[in-house]
């Protein structure tokens, strides 16, 4: 809760799935990933946090593709690269409950990936 009594949500102890995409990414190519994320989220909404990072300008089409209650966040390519060490997209990262990277679908050019990401969402 913040100073005004509003909730803010850190997700410690949750499996976190980060899907980073380009704003104009083709949904068809990502359909299997999205479908599996949607079913994953429907079944286990309480156990995992799903965050879709749209890297670049806001793209409305994405808002209908993201499962309800998942988080859709727009980030600049720089901000994305700062955290994940890559500009190569799409990028799927899964952090375990301790914040360690357990899976990354693309490899960062520098070889170093950050996944110990504490994340807070304010409603």
């Amino acid at each position: 809760m913040d100073r005004e009594g509003k909730r803010w949500q850190p997700f410690p102890n949750k499996l976190t799935v980060w899907l980073a995409v380009k704003p104009g990414a083709c949904f068809g190519c990502l359909a299997p990933v999205l479908a599996s994320l949607k079913s994953l989220h429907q079944e286990r909404g309480g156990e995992l946090a799903l965050v879709v990072l749209v890297v670049g300008e806001r793209h409305l089409a994405w808002e209908s593709q993201v499962p309800q209650a998942a988080y859709l966040v727009n980030v600049s390519p720089q901000a994305f690269a700062r955290v994940f060490g890559t500009f190569a997209l799409p990028f799927l990262a899964v952090c375990n409950r301790k914040g360690l990277l357990v899976r990354a679908e693309t490899l960062p050019p520098s070889g170093g990936t950050v996944c110990n990401l504490e994340h807070y969402f304010l409603e």
Binding site: V75, A79, R82, V114, L117, E118, H119
Partner: peptide
């Protein structure tokens, strides 16, 4: 990074790292 990267985000705003 110095340690865990902290992302703070509010709907409709740019996330802060």
């Amino acid at each position: 990074p110095r340690g865990p990267v902290v992302m703070v985000h509010r709907p409709g705003e740019k996330p802060r790292f």
